[in-house]
Design a protein around this nucleic acid. Structure first.
Length: 305
DNA sequence: GCATGTCAAGTTGTG
DNA sequence: CACAACTTGACATGC
C-alpha cells in the first residue's frame, strides 16, 4: 500500500505559509523584528496543524515541510533560536500539537532543505552553514515527530568519488538527532542511485529514490534494481520515494521541469504493491496527489472487476 | 486594491 | 564572464 505525500503547500485548501526576507526584517528594530518573526513562526506552526488535518481528511498520508518553515532561522544576521522567539512557549506547544495530530492520524512528516545546503562543498564556511541548517531543521523535526530530512548529494567538484568522500566526512559531523533523520536523494544532474547507494549502505543512510531524476540522469541500474536497493537502505523503516512527470513529456526538450500532474504510467510497476511513502512532486499539489490516487484506484478496480 | 520588483544562502552549465 | 535554472510564491511598497 502506497502512502501518498504532498509537497509543501496546497492549491485549493486555504492554508498558506508565510515567509520573510532579511532585507525587510533588517529595517525593523530588534524588538519589532522578534515580534514579526515570532508572528510568522506562530502562523506557520498553526498552518502545519491545519496541513496535517487536511492531508488526513483527503487521505494523503505524508506532508513535506517547506524549507522556509521558520524563515531566516539560521541567517547570519537575522537568525534566531526558537526559544528566543517563543517567549511564552506557545509556538512550541503548537509544534507539539501538530506532532501529536500527525502521529494520531498517521501523517508522515519530512523536511527537504533547499539547494543552498551543500554538505560536501569545498568551502568550509558553506559546510558549516549547511550543518547549522540541518541541525536547525532537525530540532524542529524532533518537536513535530518528522523522521526524514532529505538532502541531495551536493556539488561534484573534484569528481563524484572525491565529492562523496567529503559528503561522508560532513555527515560524520552531524549530531545524532540530525543524522538519524538524514536521507540522501539522487538528483537529475550529478548523483545517481548507483553513486549514492554504496555510501548509503556503508553509512547506514537511507536513499530517497527519485525515479524521475533517475530517468533524467541514468546509471547502470534498472528502475527495479534501484527500487530494491533503495528500499533495503531503509532497514525496516518505511521507504520514502519521489515521483513526478516531465512538463514537456519524455521526448520533448528538457525532461527535468515538473508537470502539473503525474502520469500514472510514470509510476514504476513494482512500487504499486510496496509499503512505501511516495511524495508527489507536481505543480497541481493536492489535486495531483488525489488524481493519481484515483487513477490507480480506478485501474485496480477495473482490473479486479 | 492591484501591480511590481525583490528575495540569505550554492553549484553547474549555457550563452 | 554573466546569468539562468533549480522552486515559485509571498512579501512590502508604491501607485
Amino acid at each position: 500500500m502506497i502512502r501518498w505525500g504532498l509537497c509543501c503547500r496546497f492549491l485549493d485548501a486555504p492554508i498558506k505559509y508565510r515567509s520573510a526576507t532579511h532585507r525587510y526584517v533588517a529595517t525593523l528594530t530588534r524588538a519589532a523584528r522578534r515580534d514579526y518573526l515570532a508572528a510568522i513562526a506562530a502562523h506557520n506552526a498553526a498552518a502545519l496543524v491545519d496541513s496535517v488535518r487536511h492531508c488526513h481528511a483527503l487521505g494523503i498520508g505524508a506532508f513535506r515541510i517547506n524549507s522556509q518553515f521558520l524563515p531566516l532561522g539560521t541567517h547570519p544576521v537575522s537568525g534566531y533560536t526558537l526559544d528566543r522567539l517563543d517567549r511564552d512557549g506557545a509556538i512550541r506547544r503548537t509544534f507539539l500539537e501538530a506532532g501529536r495530530i500527525a502521529r494520531e492520524t498517521d501523517v508522515r512528516l519530512s523536511f527537504h532543505p533547499d539547494q543552498f545546503v551543500v554538505l560536501n562543498s569545498e568551502r568550509e564556511a558553506v559546510v558549516e552553514s549547511s550543518l547549522g541548517e540541518l541541525e536547525f531543521q532537525a530540532a524542529i523535526a524532533e518537536l513535530i515527530g518528522a523522521d526524514v530530512i532529505v538532502l541531495h548529494g551536493g556539488g561534484a567538484a573534484g569528481g563524484i568519488g572525491a565529492a562523496l568522500a567529503r559528503l561522508a566526512q560532513a555527515v560524520d559531523r552531524l549530531s545524532d538527532r540530525a543524522r538519524a533523520r538524514l536521507a540522501l536523494e539522487n538528483d537529475d544532474r550529478l548523483f545517481t542511485p548507483e553513486d549514492l547507494l554504496p555510501l548509503c549502505e556503508r553509512l547506514g543512510l537511507p536513499l530517497v529514490y527519485d525515479v524521475h531524476h533517475h530517468r533524467c540522469k541514468g546509471d547502470g541500474l534498472a528502475v527495479a534494481e534501484a527500487t530494491a536497493r533503495a528500499a533495503a537502505t531503509w532497514r525496516g523503516r518505511e521507504p520514502h520515494f519521489h515521483i513526478s512527470s516531465p512538463r514537456e513529456g519524455w521526448r520533448g526538450g528538457d525532461p527535468r521541469p515538473h508537470a502539473d500532474y503525474v502520469e500514472p504510467a510514470d509510476l514504476p510497476r513494482e512500487w504499486r504493491t510496496m509499503d512505501i511513502t511516495v511524495d508527489v512532486e507536481a505543480k497541481a499539489k493536492e489535486r495531483a496527489v488525489l488524481a493519481l490516487m484515483q487513477s490507480l484506484a480506478g485501474r485496480r478496480h477495473k482490473r479486479a472487476g
